[in-house]
């Protein structure tokens, strides 16, 4: 930019020198009366030229670089902020996706666990009931057996007592005619008959 400006200034100074010569020669030529308007006059031309070149130099050195830098910095910041917002948004979307998936997996797992627990509970319940039933049946069977045994023992006891009692009654009825053995044999015969009747 510097060398370009210097080279340019040199060229422009040359060109303005030529223009100055041309304008200095102008009054010597024959022009129409009012054509003076269109001829550049040195007191205006040269100050304008120099003033514009000076302004160009001043602004190019001091004003435009800072202004352009600020505008560029602003554009860059906007672009960066937008990009950061975009990245954050896509990250957030990803995170949301992932969390939703894990929630669904967790729900599935929970459903599975509940189903398994229910099933095991059912099995346990039926097992306990079956066991209880079995033990109840056992107890009842045992009780029945015990009752049977008791009945038989009671029957035996009772039959002994019935034998003795009937011998006593018969002795009293018949008189003391019989002796113990015959009484026993008679009593057993009657007991057998009674027992057969009982058994029927």
């Amino acid at each position: 930019m510097n060398t370009k400006k210097l080279g340019l200034t040199r060229v422009v100074a040359m060109a303005s020198g030529m223009a100055l010569v041309a304008t200095a020669a102008a009054p010597a030529c024959a022009f129409a009366a009012g054509a003076d308007i269109l001829v550049p006059k040195p007191p205006e031309f040269i100050p304008a030229l120099i003033a514009f070149l000076v302004i160009w130099l001043i602004l190019a050195k001091m004003a435009w670089p800072m202004i352009i830098k600020t505008l560029d910095a602003r554009e860059e910041k906007i672009a960066d902020d937008l990009k950061a917002a975009e990245d954050a948004k896509s990250l957030a979307v990803e995170n949301e996706q992932r969390s939703r998936e894990s929630i669904i997996a967790a729900e599935n797992e929970a459903a599975d666990i509940i189903a398994a627990a229910k099933r095991e509970g059912e099995e346990e319940r039926s097992r306990i009931i079956a066991e209880a039933n079995a033990s109840a049946v056992n107890i009842i069977a045992k009780a029945r057996d015990a009752v049977e045994a008791e009945r038989k023992k009671a029957m035996v006891q009772l039959s002994g007592q019935v034998v003795d009692l009937s011998v006593e009654i018969a002795a009293k009825i018949i008189g003391d005619a019989l002796d113990n053995e015959e009484q026993h044999h008679l009593a057993e015969k009657y007991l057998l008959e009674v027992g057969n009747l009982n058994d029927e």
Binding site: L8, V11, V12, A15, S16, A19, I37, L38, V39, P40, K41, P42, P43, E44, F45, I46, A48, L49, F52, L53, W56
Partner: peptide, 15 residues
């Protein structure tokens, strides 16, 4: 004035 306008046009042309 044509002096100023001419100066500007000259600078632009040379540039």
């Amino acid at each position: 004035c044509i002096g100023t306008a001419g100066a500007l046009a000259l600078v632009s042309f040379v540039y």
